[in-house]
Simulated assay, not measured.
Amino acid sequence: MSSDTSDTGNARPGGRTARNTTAVLQATLDHLGEHGYQRISVDLIAAHSGVHKATIYRRWGGVDGLLTHALEWSASLPWEPARTGALHSDLVALNTEVAEGFTVAPERRVSYAAIAAAFESEAAAAALRTFMADRHRRSAVLVSEAVARGEAPEGTDAEEVVRAAVAPIYHRLLVCREPVEAAHVRRAARIAADAAAAGAFLAED
């Protein structure tokens, strides 16, 4: 989901308004990762982005508005899951990307901080739900393509297969605070792929 954060409806793409929007929203994500929700302020974002705080208040309304729009903006950036040609290995690749997003990716601190912010702010929680729903929707293409190849039956709930595959990874990372190893990634993917093939994700009457 992208957000229309321009002051008017006719701001030129690539113009100053667009540059300021990118600077402010990127600064919000950067400082979310560096400082956490409790220590973000409009003054901090203004200093980092070079956009006057009065403009930030007018367009985003404060910290919660900044977080909401920053997560929506992040969700709007180009991304699609890797394809390998088989559901199990597609889900392995997806789970690997999820795990790396919290462990080795440059944005790993932002990933953790966004989830922590969702426990502090309902606005951040709503924005995070929107972001995750978008990721599940985009990832569901892996399952739809697997159905077309005959790896799972017609009527399989593609997004639920994705949720089942990634859930054990999130559980280890965020609940148990345990390391995620390659064997964990493969096992979670295999269980979800096998369950999908067996019809476990068909819609119930």
Rank of each mutant, 00 (worst) to 15 (best):
F102N: 02
N10K: 10
A23G: 07
E178H: 13
E100G: 03
A126P: 01
A18I: 03
A140L: 08
A164H: 05
A114D: 01
D90Q: 08
T84E: 06
A188G: 13
V162W: 10
T103L: 01
S144E: 15
S49K: 00
S144K: 12
Y170N: 03
A167T: 13
R149Q: 09
A118W: 00
A158V: 07
T84C: 12
G61F: 04
S3I: 13
G85V: 15
R187W: 09
A118C: 05
D64P: 05
V42A: 06
R19Q: 11
G62T: 07
P106T: 09
L67F: 02
E80K: 08
A123E: 04
A86R: 14
D7T: 09
S2Y: 10
D157C: 10
S49H: 08
A133C: 09
E122Y: 05
N10V: 14
E80I: 02
D90H: 07
A188M: 11
P179L: 05
E145A: 10
L142C: 08
T17L: 03
A183E: 15
W60A: 01
T84V: 14
G33Q: 06
S111W: 04
H184C: 02
A70M: 04
E181H: 15
E34F: 03
L142F: 01
L128E: 03
A197I: 10
A47G: 12
G36H: 11
A70I: 00
K53G: 03
E154L: 15
R149M: 06
R16C: 02
G101C: 08
H69P: 00
S139E: 08
P78Q: 07
A126I: 09
E97S: 11
H35R: 15
S3A: 15
I56H: 07
E159D: 09
G62P: 00
L94W: 01
E154S: 15
S76R: 06
D64E: 12
H88K: 14
A116I: 04
L71K: 05
Q26A: 11
A125E: 13
R109L: 15
Y112W: 15
E181P: 00
R59E: 02
R83W: 12
F119W: 11
A93N: 04
F119L: 13
A47Y: 03
R12F: 11
W60Q: 01
R187E: 15
V24C: 05
A164T: 14
S6Y: 14
L29M: 12
A11H: 04
V104L: 13
R149Y: 06
S76I: 13
P179H: 08
T8K: 14
H48W: 04
A182S: 15
H31D: 14
L91M: 08
T130G: 15
R177S: 09
T22D: 14
D194F: 02
A164G: 06
L87P: 02
G36A: 15
I45W: 03
A200R: 06
P78E: 07
T28Q: 04
T55D: 13
A193F: 05
I56Y: 07
D30K: 12
H48G: 09
A118R: 00
D30G: 07
F131E: 10
A46H: 08
R58C: 01
P153S: 07
A167H: 15
T55G: 06
G15I: 01
D30E: 14
G33R: 05
F131A: 12
D64L: 08
G85D: 11
H171C: 09
L173W: 04
S139K: 00
T84N: 05
T22C: 02
A105K: 07
V51N: 13
V92F: 04
